[in-house]
Nucleic acid binder design. Sequence first.
DNA 1: AGAGGGATTGGG
DNA 2: CCAATCCCTCTA
Length: 182
Amino acid sequence: MQPLPRSFYNRDTIVVARELLGKHLVRVTSEGNRMGRIVEVEAYLGPHDLAAHSSKGLTERTRIMFGPPGYSYVYLIYGIHHCLNVVTEPAGHGAAVLLRALEPLAGLSGRTSGPGLLCRALGIDRQWNGHDLLSDDFFITDPGAAAVRIVARPRIGVDYARHWARRKLRFYERGNPFVSRP
DNA sequence: AGAGGGATTGGG
DNA sequence: CCAATCCCTCTA
C-alpha cells in the first residue's frame, strides 16, 4: 500500500477527479488505520472557475491551492465543518479536487457521506492544511480494482458561480449508496 | 477595526 | 426553511 505518485496529481483536474473515484484514502493513527474508498468528488479548475476559492486570487487562504500538486487543502466552512481537497496541476495553477464522500473500509465511525462528515470521520481539521499526500501517515492509494462507472452532475452549493454552476464537475460512482446526494 | 458571507449539516 | 459559528477577505 503506497501513496499515489506526484505525477498522478500533476495532470488535468477533471482527469484526476474522475480517477480518484475508487481510490483509497488512508490515515494512519496510533490506534490503527482509518480508511475509506472515494466515491464522490468535485473538480475546481482554477482562478477562471468562479466556484473555486482560487478565483479570489492568491491569498493566505488559497496559498496551498496555488502550490504544487499532491498536497491537501483543508478549510473551515460555515464555522463548523472542514472540507478536504487535493491540489492538482503544476504549481501556480490554482486547481483542486474536493473529496465529498467515502465508502467506509476500516476505522471510520459515523457517516462519511458529505465533505464535512468525511473530515469528521477521518479526524481531519485545518491542522492538515498543506499536508503532503505523498507521506506515510495520510495519503491516497490505488487498490488496483476494476474501473468505476462514473456519473457527472453539477457541483453542490455553488449557485453563485453563474455559468460555472451548471458545469458537470461533480463525479460519483453510479449506484453507490454512500454518495451524499445521488 | 468591523462587516459580510461561505465548496455544510441537522432540525422544524 | 433556517440557525449554527469561525475566520478569511474586503473596505475604511
